[in-house]
Design a protein around this nucleic acid. Sequence first.
DNA 1: TCCTCTGGTGAGTAATTGCTCATGGGCAAA
DNA 2: TTTGCCCATGAGCAATTACTCACCAGAGGA
Lengths: 317, 317
Amino acid sequence: MAKRTETPGRLDDAARAGWLYYVAGRTQDEIASTMGISRQSAQRLVSLAVAERLIKVRLDHPIAACLELGYELREKFDLKHVEIVPSDPGASSTTVGIAEAAAAEIERWLRRPDPIVLAIGTGRTLKAAVDQLPTIECPNHRIVSLTGNITPDGSAAYYNVIFSMADAVKARHFPMPLPVLASSAEERELLHGQQLVRSTLKISAQADVTFVGIGELGTDGPLCVDGFLAKDEMIELMREGAVGEICGWIFDGNGKLLDNPINERVASAPIPSRETSTVIGIAKGKRKFQAIRAAVVGRQVNALITDEEAAEFLLNA
Amino acid sequence: MAKRTETPGRLDDAARAGWLYYVAGRTQDEIASTMGISRQSAQRLVSLAVAERLIKVRLDHPIAACLELGYELREKFDLKHVEIVPSDPGASSTTVGIAEAAAAEIERWLRRPDPIVLAIGTGRTLKAAVDQLPTIECPNHRIVSLTGNITPDGSAAYYNVIFSMADAVKARHFPMPLPVLASSAEERELLHGQQLVRSTLKISAQADVTFVGIGELGTDGPLCVDGFLAKDEMIELMREGAVGEICGWIFDGNGKLLDNPINERVASAPIPSRETSTVIGIAKGKRKFQAIRAAVVGRQVNALITDEEAAEFLLNA
DNA sequence: TCCTCTGGTGAGTAATTGCTCATGGGCAAA
DNA sequence: TTTGCCCATGAGCAATTACTCACCAGAGGA
């Protein structure tokens, strides 16, 4: 709140100093001498001009809107990191743009000198992101997959991204030698009891950063298309309120994991702690709006890479 | 001139860094670590953002002294609009400050919802102002150049600002496909008789608002430097009493257009009516004092954007 | 193929800016 | 008038930013 008793001329001086500093580009020393005051006073006037919002800065570039949205999202949902890429209204692709952004973010983590554990989920978006990665040598890091790499028919899952990642990144990789869905809760326990799986699960729990795609449900969503769930199972799930999934873990509109037989069969590692690590959800596109919102409000993720369109939805929803 | 070949992502990065620095108020160190680059690179991106004019700074406070001067000028010379910016005693630039103010004024006009015709002259000051414009969409407005865009040597005139304007502002633009000076009065008539030119001239006569630079004469003034007039022609003109020019139209100390062969060759459109529209002159600097005074007293303009120094001269002259 | 040139990088350093603290003047209340 | 408070001031110092230099990688031409 501006002081009522503010000397009337003082704001004027602040404006003048701010003008000389920001518009005319003089140093505070020069301002001090032309205004006949000490350097410190000039500094104070300049910062007063800023504090009183006399100085308006704006950025004339499309990115500005994205940064703005990102900032608001970070505040609203208490996220650790948000990245918004411009929407391309015409494009129907669910990966263009965010794949590059996600790749850049993955790369930033991998370039860290201190050893980290990077966990990674699955899905088309992540695959596209990983395909954007340059070759990097980072022998200190460990990369672990959260999801199994065996499909119901026994073949390797195409969208299991850890192998694509291994092509580009020279680091120790830990795939998950499991199907995505076990046939029963008991089978899952059995599988998770295996020595190899247990150690991989243990590593995944230590992840410093996790990249996951956020999947929408629906009979033409990835879980159905890729044959993990039958159509009637999907319909039943949606009737129970399910709106999205991460690594196979199905959650409702509030982002709570569903308490139902499917989730008991999910063989993926649990999503690493959102308390102690960064879990970055990656998704865009109208069909995923509800899933993204649920994942964020239910704190299945604590960081987000998405596009303008989805960001606006999240802010207004 | 910005490199066309600028790596496309680089300006994006610069914008991002600039936003983080100026809008979000982060330090360059923080920016460096969030963007995964070195501190020096972050600094470079920030300064690139400034250099490429992605960052627009504006002072949103009427400085009392300037307001006062503006009011007195408006009264004394019966002007429709006066804007005074602070003087920077040290600076030799003839554009710093008024360019931003002029850009703000142009923007105010362009943001009007009802369709207007905005006419624009030429010159370094106007160019600098237009470079400050953000991108605006205003399909309802028409923007017309008063001066030709062809130099004596046949190349496009650099300081013909309508093309810079077209980069920033999405509106219908009407350049003037003429030289600045015709070789003779007859040639001018011939040129002005062309259909295309006639329709452009007609639009310019309907201008709701006009922005023109006020040029000083002198052998190192713009008309000579840019090669429109030879030195001896200039000397002759000055002996006849010429002190300034607007769009090439040369006037004497009382602001009366000179009745001489040069003015008969000026191919620019006439300055739109000061009775029915707003014609804003933009100029500052000691060398232009006489030209500004003449333009104002002779009512070649009926509005003014200048600086404190010139305003004081006008009040005391 | 080699050379050159452009443009980017990191390091080091100088310049500039921001912060804290002790001081003192002005003003209102006692 | 005196007291006490507020806040502007200047100094010194820490943090931050800008600049220069030497070097490197890739593009393009001889």
